[in-house]
Design a protein around this nucleic acid. Structure first.
Length: 951
RNA sequence: GCCGAAGUGGUGGAAUUGGUAGACACGUUGGAUUCAAAAUCCAAUGCUAGCAAUAGCGUGAGGGUUCGAGUCCCUCCUUCGGUACCA
């Protein structure tokens, strides 16, 4: 009998499926354990080889925990709303619901083929109305709640209204966008619309103006991802930053709790640090600066109020609302030119810009401490959404301010004497204050609190805690997402729909193109005006909405009366182990924590944190191939050139367009290129480039209306290759199906684990998969030969037990550490050693089968049945090792001279330190190293090594 | 730019967390088996010098701490992830 994965794997999957082996119920007799995978976006390219890395790891752990006696919840579903399906619909006219359903079907099949122990009865899809009913419901609750900063929790908006009725804004404890001041009687006099606008300022889900990537040509908002070098990735049209009213979620109200909650989580320090830095708590001062000749004030936040005497100019973000009003006529032309230049850049480009740039508005502010007139500038290094969008610039103690002042010749006043700290850099918070009036002589720390005191005393501001994190833009002017459960009355007053009106289903359409200046839904007038007297919100929610709470839905996926029943939530509580990519480190993981805390505040959940333990799997990377499009030639004939030509003419003139790796010859190498066939495939694929020339170093081709009109012989246009994400958007997806059909699922699973630690990223490569396949065959042959099951010995030998239990010990330890690659090495070593023995006992064979069961589940169940069992090996308990089988009589010691190994010697395991020292000094192999030198010291680490220091 | 991570043979990686660097595999070379091939098995394999015993060098680069550094500290380089509308 040979090892035939294609036969046994299909058989066992069918069997598991029919017997419902992985179906799970709440069971109070067993401890619960919830293993969650980050669910996939069902892309059209199918599951790629990177997805399973985490899924295999979590499946191994789930199976292991089950065998350790836990009731394990291990579900899977789909993050099914998103941009790619919509883009695909725009290009092909195929409805996103249809393509998404097809893609999910493919994913389901592929996931089943991987032999995962998912309970498929619990599958969720974020695009299903039964699911997004509850996404919408959570949104209505966010809309109806405000954040009470004194109670430190979310409370119903009626509390705010009651407060305003009685006290106006006096000592109002609710988190808000803008500090408002009015009395109770003023509030009572407001119109319903005015009241609504005021409440909007406090709601956890609220509307305000935000900046979006606007592409006039395409008439739509683009994702950052779809913008390259200020041009749209599709078509290469200009993109600007445009203000638009958007829904936001007030995650900033939860900033401190999100920070504090990290303490007790079993997440990597790196991940916690990333979240802490993203939240970015800083203590400092809010300060108002007067403007010379104007009633307006500039509000700034600074962490260094001590340096205020050194503030010699101010910088506003170019999109700051005061810019228009403060600009003088002489400066207007250059200011406008600068603003429009900056608005064509993305935030990342602005932050990454090394060259210092800015323009003076012509206006002056007054330094509140020195009463000096200081010029007001705008500069791209100040971002609108960070802090207040304005800074006081202190060139003496801030690097970027310093560079700016040097470039524009602005005054620099030294305000801190750092002579006592010779190694301190410009921004270090050390030294004694100078040139700073009442602060002179104070240390920085004292000066900060003194400055805050005086600022407050003079009513120029106050001490303040600031967070770098911003509220989340929750609007998308798109089709394929959750509609908002919001309607507007004839006065434009928004209200949330109650749960009996949910879900608000996404209306059917066959036109997914953006409506000029509006969301695609705005075109569907019948739907918009469905409720008499009201119009519907036409934005949709972002993909992050559905993924912020899906882990709760798995607990009770079919519930139509609540997001999940109280009983299910009480039993499963939270996720014990969450496995997913590091690319979600801040966005998804912060939003989900935020929603979880909000639902906790509402009394819906018993825990404050959703994910107790988290492992980041590394990414299996792909090779991305780019071709170079000339930016200078935007109209008519597009011009593509080879990598060398782009380099020669200057890379800044070219946009790198990712191409499908299957079009590229010698893909992944330094010499990858598009051949004649390649450019034909390319232009058939990207219709917007059917009019184009393709230039290689000494060959060229021309395409008109998609057909080749001219080409030189041996055409070759080189592409540039990069290692990066495997993603449909980059057209470099490698699918696991082929690997599985060749080697089988068990082999694929083990190979992905064998590649290295799961948290490490590496490019996909099948070198070495043969080794794993050979191992499985060898393992199989420990049990079965040409005549069937090999006869077993009566009793296990001592050597057999030692080999087996060494492996059991290693695997138990390594699985707990999620070190699966070394588990597989241990199984290989164990198999190689056992092969040298003539006969194995039945109990050894059974233990081996259980050991490999989490890794190669099909193989294990086949061997288990060959060993004579009726039920599944996956219902057995995992073996634990017996220490007494492992004892050694002697230990091999390395003998070192000055830390270098010079000889080996075997000594009894129980030999004392002093005896080891003596034995080492008289060891034959060391005599030539000890001759003629004095022994200074001997270091003996029992069980480890012996080191002799000579001099 | 900022935040986080990773750099070890020809390749993927291992190293009890400061104690024998290169486990386990892939690849390569040689051999066995075979009419032949596949499959399987055995042996060698970090680099340099040497017939060999052996010696020197060696964990991205440079410096430091230590009896001893892949592991700890400092500076730098490269690659990857995130950077708020990919998911």
């Amino acid at each position: 009998m040979h090892y035939r994965p294609e036969e046994i794997e299909a058989k066992w999957r069918k069997h598991w499926n029919e017997s419902g082996l992985y179906r799970i119920q709440e069971d109070s007799s067993k401890p619960k354990y919830y293993v969650l995978d980050m669910f996939p976006y069902p892309s059209g390219a199918g599951l790629h080889v990177g997805h399973p890395l985490g899924y295999i790891a979590s499946d191994i752990f789930s199976r292991y925990q089950r065998m350790k006696g836990f009731n394990v919840l291990h579900p899977m579903g789909f993050d099914a709303f998103g941009l790619p399906a919509e883009e695909y619909a725009i290009q092909t006219g195929i409805h996103p619901a249809k393509s998404t359903e097809q893609n999910m079907e493919t994913y389901r099949r592929q996931l089943r083929d991987l032999g995962f122990s998912f309970d498929w009865d619990r599958e969720v899809q974020t695009c299903a109305p039964e699911y997004y009913k509850w996404t919408q419901w959570i949104f209505t609750q966010l809309f109806d709640h405000v954040y009470d900063q004194e109670a430190d929790k979310a409370v119903h908006v009626s509390n705010l209204v009651a407060h305003l009725e009685q006290h106006g804004t006096d000592s109002l404890p609710y988190a808000c966008e803008e500090e408002l001041t009015f009395t109770a009687s003023e509030w009572q006099g407001y119109s319903p619309k005015e009241k609504s606008d005021v409440l909007m300022n406090y709601r956890l889900a609220y509307r305000k103006i935000g900046y979006v990537n606007w592409c006039e040509e395409l008439g739509t908002v683009l994702a950052n991802d779809q913008v390259k070098d200020g041009l749209s990735e599709r078509g290469g049209h200009p993109v600007i930053q445009k203000p638009m009213t958007q829904w936001y979620l007030r995650i900033t109200a939860y900033a401190q709790r999100l920070l504090d909650g990290l303490e007790d989580l079993e997440w990597s320090d790196a991940l916690k640090t990333m979240q802490r830095n993203w939240i970015g708590r800083s203590e400092g001062a809010q300060v108002f600066f007067d403007i010379d000749g104007s009633e307006e004030k500039i509000e700034i936040f600074t962490t260094r109020p001590d340096t205020i005497f050194g503030a010699t100019y101010m910088v506003l973000a170019p999109e700051h609302e005061l810019v228009q009003r403060l600009t003088t006529d002489e400066q207007r032309a250059s200011v406008e030119e600068y603003v429009s230049k900056v608005m064509s850049k993305s935030e990342i480009e602005r932050m990454a810009e090394r060259e210092v740039s800015g323009v003076w508005l012509g206006a002056y502010a007054i330094n509140p401490m020195t009463d000096e007139r200081i010029p007001i500038w705008i500069g791209e290094y100040v971002l609108k959404d960070y802090g207040t969008g304005a800074i006081m610039a202190v060139p003496s103690d801030d690097d970027r301010d310093h560079n700016f002042a040097e470039k524009f010749d602005l005054p620099i006043i030294q305000v801190i004497d750092k002579s006592a700290h010779p190694n301190a850099t410009r921004s270090d918070k050390v030294g004694k204050l100078i040139n700073s009036g009442f602060l002179n002589g104070l240390e920085v720390k004292e000066a900060i609190s003194k400055a805050c005191e005086v600022i407050e005393e003079r009513q120029r501001g106050k001490a303040q805690i600031n967070y770098r994190m911003r509220d989340a833009n929750f609007s998308r002017q798109r089709y394929w997402g959750e509609p908002f459960p919001i309607v507007y009355d004839t006065n434009g007053i928004p209200s949330a729909l109650s749960v009996e009106h949910l879900p608000v289903e996404l209306p059917a359409t066959d036109n997914f193109k953006p409506a000029k200046d509006e969301s695609p839904l705005a075109r569907m007038q019948e739907w918009v005006n469905e409720l008499p007297g009201y119009t519907r919100e036409t934005d949709v929610m972002p993909a992050v909405a559905g993924s912020s709470w899906y882990y709760l839905r798995y607990m009770d996926p079919a519930n139509n009366d609540a997001l999940a029943s109280d009983a299910a939530i009480k039993y499963w509580k939270d996720v014990d182990l969450y496995v997913g990519g590091a690319e979600h480190a801040v966005a998804h993981l912060l939003y989900a924590r935020f929603w979880h805390k909000f639902l906790y505040d509402m009394g819906k959940l018993p825990t404050q944190e959703p994910f107790k333990k988290l492992i980041n799997q590394g990414m299996i990377q792909g090779v991305i191939e780019f071709i170079h499009l000339d930016k200078r030639q935007e109209e008519g004939m597009r011009r593509f050139v080879s990598a060398e030509l782009a380099e020669r003419e200057g890379a800044e003139h070219f946009v790198k367009i990712p191409v499908h790796v299957s079009f590229v010859s010698d893909y992944g190498s330094d010499q990858s290129y598009l051949s004649e066939q390649g450019i034909k495939e390319f232009s058939a694929w990207r219709k917007e480039y059917t009019h184009a020339t393709f230039e290689g170093v000494d060959s060229s081709a021309e395409m008109k209306d998609g057909s080749l009109v001219a080409i030189t012989p041996d055409f070759k246009m080189t592409t540039s290759s990069e290692v990066g994400k495997m993603s449909k958007r980059l057209f470099n997806v490698i699918n696991p199906d082929d690997v599985i059909s060749q080697y089988g699922t068990d082999c694929f699973r083990m190979y992905e684990m064998f590649l290295g630690p799961i948290e490490q990223s590496k490019p996909w490569d099948t070198n070495g998969i043969d080794g794993v396949y050979k191992f499985l065959k060898k393992f199989w042959r420990l049990f079965v030969d040409d005549h069937g099951l090999i006869a077993s010995s009566e009793e296990a030998s001592a050597e057999e037990l030692k080999i087996l239990h060494t492996c059991i010990k290693k695997i138990n330890g390594d699985v707990e550490k999620f070190s699966f690659n070394t588990c597989i090495s241990a199984l290989m070593i164990c198999t190689n050693s056992l092969r040298d023995l003539t006969k194995l006992s039945q109990s050894t064979k059974e233990d081996l089968t259980k050991l490999i069961a989490p890794f190669a589940p099909h193989l294990a169940d086949e061997l288990w049945s060959i060993l004579g069992h009726q039920s599944s090996v996956h219902l057995e308990s995992f073996p634990s090792h017996e220490e007494s089988y492992l004892t050694e009589d002697s230990i091999e010691y390395p003998l070192c001279i000055n830390g270098k190994k010079r000889a080996m010697a075997s000594f009894p395991a129980d030999m004392q330190k002093s005896d080891l020292e003596k034995a080492a000094l008289t060891h034959d192999g060391l005599s030539k190293w000890l001759e003629g030198s004095t022994v200074r010291k001997v270091i003996v680490v029992p069980g480890r090594m012996i080191n002799i220091v000579v001099g």
